[in-house]
Simulated scan of single mutants.
Amino acid sequence: MAGVQRAEEQATRNGIQALEMAYSGVQSRRQDVENTKHGMTAALQGSDGLSFQRLLDSWDEHAEIISKNLKDMIDQLNETLRSQGLAQGSSNEAINQAYSQSQSVFDNLMGSTENK
């Protein structure tokens, strides 16, 4: 039974690690899109610029949902480990910091669309 429990623990930890990597990748791509958006805003004017901005805003809204779902799954797997009396599987502080940063990027995007 202990071997099965250790295997389940390791599988949970592997799941957490995979989700953290996915979360980090999404956040990195969101930052790339934000940088591209700022670079392109000055270059594109008129309806094509507005359409491009809407496309990027829409993409970021979807990426925010994905980020939140990934974070929720990470939290749920960490809670699974805690409820089994095991050590925490990931650094919640690092996750929360990345999530906060992503929310800030999203808020900035939403503020920039309201001003236009």
Rank of each mutant, 00 (worst) to 15 (best):
G3W: 07
V4F: 09
V4N: 12
A7M: 13
E8I: 11
E9I: 10
Q10C: 04
T12S: 02
G15H: 01
I16Y: 01
I16E: 01
I16W: 01
A18W: 01
A18I: 02
L19Y: 02
L19Q: 03
E20C: 13
M21Q: 14
A22S: 15
A22G: 04
A22Q: 15
A22Y: 05
S24W: 04
S24F: 08
G25K: 07
G25D: 07
V26R: 02
V26E: 02
Q27Y: 06
S28M: 12
R29V: 12
R30C: 15
R30M: 15
R30W: 06
V33T: 15
E34V: 11
N35A: 05
N35K: 05
T36E: 07
T36F: 05
K37T: 15
K37E: 13
K37N: 13
K37I: 09
H38N: 05
G39K: 04
T41M: 07
T41N: 06
A42V: 05
A43K: 04
A43S: 03
A43P: 00
L44K: 00
S47K: 15
S47A: 15
G49Y: 00
L50G: 05
L50T: 11
L55S: 06
S58P: 05
S58A: 12
S58R: 08
W59A: 11
D60I: 10
E61G: 08
A63T: 03
E64N: 08
I66L: 13
I66H: 11
S67W: 06
N69D: 08
N69E: 15
K71L: 11
D72N: 15
M73E: 15
D75V: 08
Q76F: 09
L77I: 01
S83K: 01
Q84N: 02
Q84Y: 00
A87N: 03
A87T: 04
A87H: 03
Q88M: 05
S90T: 12
S91F: 01
N92E: 09
N92Y: 04
A94R: 06
A94Q: 10
I95K: 03
I95G: 04
Q97R: 13
A98P: 03
A98T: 10
S100W: 05
S102K: 09
Q103H: 09
S104E: 10
V105H: 04
V105D: 02
F106T: 02
L109E: 10
S112R: 09
S112W: 03
T113S: 07
E114Q: 13
E114F: 08
K116I: 15
